[in-house]
């Protein structure tokens, strides 16, 4: 957290944002003494671009959003579902109103629908070995166009740099100002900075509250085997 706080302080100072913002953890920033949920994933560049493509008219007649995310063993699959449901509603610019979940221990599959009938499918599993980078894919299919964060005819994302030597290495750097941070760390710092800059504390709390409600519905659905509707 110390490195992330230093980077956040750097941005606050550089852009003259006169707000006291402290990162409590990876999910929370404290703004002038008030705890605010970060929803940091919204600041990953790929989702910003997908949102622009979907809601800006590049894609027309959205039908489906398909999401898959595989994370480390022992991780909370509902925490991952929380993230992915939020990415769906963020990218689509729509509210989710129903959810059906089938869970088997550390894996779950879900179907969620939007007010206008657009369908989201979410496949979550916590099956990777410790230290393995999460694998994920986000794809939106429309009458006119498909948008995906994985290249066509590939199963995994590529990295920016590969070294094949005595020790194989790979690097993906995405932010010049925050050079050295991972994609996820960049998103945390950018999210905290954004809230400090925009002062949208109530908006973020409302968004998080709605997500809590969706997750409660998802857990009930997994338990009772029925679709839950808002």
């Amino acid at each position: 957290m110390k490195v992330l706080q230093e980077k956040l302080n750097f941005l606050l100072e550089k852009y003259s944002v006169d707000v006291k913002a402290e990162l409590k953890d990876e999910k929370t920033v404290v703004i002038n003494g008030v705890e605010v949920p970060l929803l940091a994933h919204r600041n990953e560049r790929r989702f910003l671009e997908q949102k622009n493509i979907v809601t800006g008219g590049t894609l027309q007649g959205v039908s489906v959003m398909r999401v898959a995310r595989i994370i480390e063993k022992g991780s909370d699959i509902y925490e991952a579902l929380y993230r992915e449901l939020d990415i769906c509603r963020y990218v689509l610019g729509r509210k989710l109103i129903s959810i059906m979940v089938m869970q088997n221990d550390n894996v779950l599959n879900a179907i969620s629908t939007c007010e206008d009938g657009v369908v989201c499918t979410l496949e979550i599993s916590a099956t990777l070995a410790k230290g393995e980078v999460p694998k994920d894919k986000h794809e939106i299919i429309a009458q006119r166009g498909t948008c995906c964060d994985v290249v066509v005819d590939a199963q995994l994302k590529q990295d920016s740099i590969y070294i094949f030597g005595e020790e194989n290495q790979k690097f993906t750097d995405v932010d010049f100002e925050l050079f050295g941070l991972t994609i996820e760390q960049v998103a945390i710092v950018r999210a905290a900075f954004g809230i400090a800059q925009k002062n949208n504390i109530e908006e973020m709390k409302t968004l998080a509250g709605e997500l809590d409600q969706l997750i409660a519905m998802a857990k009930r659905s997994a338990e009772n085997g029925e679709r839950e509707v808002l």
């Binding site: 039908s63 489906v64 398909r66 089938m102 369908v119 299919i141």
Partner: peptide, 17 residues
């Protein structure tokens, strides 16, 4: 889901769990 081919009579997009 809503069809991506709105002019056909049958479903073209669906999800199953």
């Amino acid at each position: 889901a809503p069809n991506i081919r709105p002019d056909i009579q049958e479903e073209d997009m669906l999800s199953v769990i």
